[in-house]
Design a protein around this nucleic acid. Structure first.
Lengths: 206, 206
DNA sequence: TAGATTGTTAATCGATTAACAATC
DNA sequence: TAGATTGTTAATCGATTAACAATC
């Protein structure tokens, strides 16, 4: 199948989570407008997204919830799951490690990297911290394909380059430093300062 | 001035940060293509954004860096600054508190709220934690207009409603629970699980 | 001048929404 | 049947990019 639009992928992820959360509460089937209401979007958008992944409803009963969850899993997840590493175990890196632990099963945080000797070889939320020099070896041994970068901005670029050297395929960059990647590496960036400033702008009195 | 497109506001925030960071390194003036290169976008986009805010370059020397930083400040910041509160002092809430402390001066985290008695009345990174019952009073006394929500998803909705009751104008929601707001409250949501799943999808082998 | 840079309009691209025939 | 729901095309909206005249 052709790659889906990024926005559709984001919503598929949200559909799945909300359906999993409501799995016990709702019936076995759900109508497009009910799913839409849970996410505060329109029913047309739900139907169009599901059309794009070739999923069809059953009769006029709506969408089979369990089947839909499985179908979205087939699209987003990999058979074997993807292994993830955190690079940078500051406050933010540790919070993310704790946050992801015990969440979705197909995305596993299996290692952390930091240069602080006080952190290396300790474990945080069951995740072992390694020194940066060990990265290549650990990435290979643990089949890590994604890194989450939470280092200070000044070293973000060298960390990203190092990750690419180690064979990483996807990067989630939480630093304020904008990165650019070769075309074979997928990059997703988020900056909370920008988000907060956006809020500040839009609530400003004219 | 009419409200700018959200994407333009995001980039203005990024322009400012990158210019501040490079303030000493670069010359007093910067060309659109140089600024674009720093953010890995196109020069046309930079020029169009600056056109929208009515900022013009000087001669053929490029944009006056200091003036541009000030101009963006006038657009994004409020005269008096905006006061921000964190609601939910878990790992994530504490990390964000520490992260924002000592950053941009016009956005100040002036309070935190949590229901855990062990946290209430303690301070984290110079920010005092209050009980949820005190919210209305503290928001009023400290003129808080924005809250960052980092509570467990199950209570996100009641926290958001309470915030609105207290007169909050903008919400930055980091929980996985999608919120919907009355039209007079500005809402920005971010979900890192979705971001990570998006990365996972796009690096999947065909 | 020739070359570099700009501000702005028009064209393109992508994503959302409206419209509607088909189904139960 | 009548009403509700769906899948899908066409129209709309918004954001990015291309084109280009004007400036130094």
């Amino acid at each position: 199948m052709e790659k889906l639009p990024g926005k559709t992928v984001e919503r598929l992820s949200e559909y799945r989570r909300i359906l999993l959360a409501y799995l016990d509460a709702v019936d076995d089937y759900i109508f497009s407008h009910d799913l839409a209401a849970l996410l505060h979007i329109t029913a047309v958008q739900v139907r169009r997204d599901l059309m794009l992944i070739g999923y069809t409803s059953v009769l006029k009963k709506g969408y089979d919830v369990k089947k839909l969850v499985r179908t979205i899993g087939v699209i987003i997840d990999s058979e074997e799951g993807q292994n993830v590493a955190i690079v940078g175990l500051g406050n933010f890196g540790r919070a993310i490690t704790g946050y992801f632990k015990g969440k979705r099963s197909k995305l596993n945080i299996v290692a952390a990297f930091d240069n602080d000797p006080k952190k290396v070889s300790r474990t945080f939320y069951d995740v072992t911290c390694y020194a940066m020099e060990e990265m290549e070896q650990v990435v290979r041994e643990k089949s890590i394909s994604i890194v989450i970068i939470t280092v200070p901005p000044v070293v973000a670029r060298v960390v990203a380059l190092k990750s690419i050297d180690c064979g990483i395929k996807g990067i989630l960059n939480f630093t304020t430093m904008s990165l650019n990647m070769p075309p074979n590496v997928y990059l997703e960036e988020y900056d909370m300062v920008t988000s907060l400033e956006k809020v500040a702008y839009f609530i400003k009195e004219t």
